[in-house]
Design a protein around this nucleic acid. Sequence first.
DNA 1: GTGAAAGCGCTAACAT
DNA 2: ATGTTAGCGCTTTCAC
Lengths: 336, 336
Amino acid sequence: MLRMKRVTIEDVARQAGVSIATVSRVVSGSTHVAPMTTAKVQAAINMLGYKPNPIAKHLAGQRTNTIGLIVDEIVGDFFQPMLRGIEQTSSEHGYDLLIHSTRMRRRSGSYPVAEHNTDGIIVFGNSLPLDELRRLYIKQFPMVLMHQTPPSDVHVPCVTIENKRSAQRMVDYLIEQRGYTEIAFLRGPEGNEDSQWRELGFRESMAAHGLKVDDELIGMGGFEEMQAHHTVTQWVRQGKRPRCIFAADDDSALGVLRALKEAGLRVPQDVAVVGFDDIRIASYLSPALTTVRAPIEQVSRVAVETLIQLLEGETPQMLTLLPTELIIRESCGYSA
Amino acid sequence: MLRMKRVTIEDVARQAGVSIATVSRVVSGSTHVAPMTTAKVQAAINMLGYKPNPIAKHLAGQRTNTIGLIVDEIVGDFFQPMLRGIEQTSSEHGYDLLIHSTRMRRRSGSYPVAEHNTDGIIVFGNSLPLDELRRLYIKQFPMVLMHQTPPSDVHVPCVTIENKRSAQRMVDYLIEQRGYTEIAFLRGPEGNEDSQWRELGFRESMAAHGLKVDDELIGMGGFEEMQAHHTVTQWVRQGKRPRCIFAADDDSALGVLRALKEAGLRVPQDVAVVGFDDIRIASYLSPALTTVRAPIEQVSRVAVETLIQLLEGETPQMLTLLPTELIIRESCGYSA
DNA sequence: GTGAAAGCGCTAACAT
DNA sequence: ATGTTAGCGCTTTCAC
């Protein structure tokens, strides 16, 4: 495809009767330029409709003015608010956004979004393998992690939510306000950090109330409707029937609800169910799902702001934990 | 932030004892290079860990290897499958993805994602004002429209779904299979093209069956729960009670369902409701929502492929209409 | 305050 | 088959 001839800095310089250096100065505002000269240059710029070419700027200036976002997979209710926060904040700060999903690809061993085309990146969860993370860290390439803390030898800022404390508060509520003593927990995927913290919060609350955690009632939910459904169906078949099930995320809570319904058990009368995330469906279910609302968009915003601090040479906070909100609805036994 | 000294093409050339041109040839594979030389260069590349700098490549080569996506707002259930399709397809073809939302911004009158940093763009809906669309078109800048046909003077490929035909089929079903004769229609936002085609399909089906469309029963849904709720609530207050309501999208169908419930009307016994899109919630509602499933991810894939054809100088299809699927659930009166 | 000129890292003629 | 070199459009010393 042929590209039309662009208006370059030279055209402007010629038109204004100055050198390209002066035009550059006027455009960037880096050095003082005589008011008259500035006016002439501005006039030429407007007349010609000059737009600086960012690519050339990047080559010369050694920066791209672009932020990269690396995610595992573009999927789930989680994704949209996350991207929204990142895009908006980047844009507000004048950065472009390059996005890349690492799922299913790994062409030639190198990642298409990294130091060569961005000034810094935001890494969601464990979308980047540890060795790549280390490589970038050693190179001192600016990056911020979201929803995943870095390994101890990688000293990079991290923004996430108060997983442990939230789970703890939820379980406190279930025990203290609803009077449940037998609570099952449905884990997220193997190694998922969010899930680990939530489980820890669950266990600490149970312990703090002098309640025993029955290991038979710690199951796999996989942050997935299907897996959770399977686990709970098995429980029911084996005669295990906890009074309450805490699913580590709302998607698995969906599976729990379906499994209970199929087993002829009523929610919340027979079994109470709570989730985590407050996905959109949560409030539309009947009974509506009690859950924890995570400020996903806010996490994104803070992540971008943290990265920009890094880019500007400031020293950002290394760990940011954003607070959540308990959303009490009918599925836990509450009624208005 | 200081950047480490990069390994450049010159370092490789020196190390391999050849010229930079030869290195460039080996890397790009553009011209035949003697096997021995190739081997030497490869060895040097590996040894030094050389990575070509895309920015320099872009400046010199006049292309960015990047596709831009322009959307209005990052919001809704629609967004995630759309982006997913675009990201995957771009990536599969070796393109990076730059994304920009035009909502709420318009810094310095120029758009941050356009001809200066991409080889071509995909424009969703009417996220780009007409004058900008024209400007790019006149410049012959490669672009493809999604879910919106271009104005007649802008000859650009467009990919969308069979809106009219789908609506028609839905209404055919409602009339022929369910026996409804009085059907209301809830429009999308003013000027939204999807909605216009859907309304047309609705009207044609009604006409084809010799049924009158009552203009009092054409209301505003705005592709939004709130607006739809408001409209239907007004209808009920005014004693209008259509036997069936066709909401132009599922979000508005949600508002319809809520309004009817609040008015004490049963779905589908008193009023049947159908939507369009098949958002995730649709199947979880009770009654589950009858709707039209749109192949959103597929539209994205085709849009990217079309753009790439354009970039490669081929002549793509100018209009692609992807078929949909009727999803019949309980809200229209169907029972298994 | 402003101009000249040296890069930034690479591609693509043009030579050889 | 390979080397030489002129850009790509801009930023940034370094002089004047």
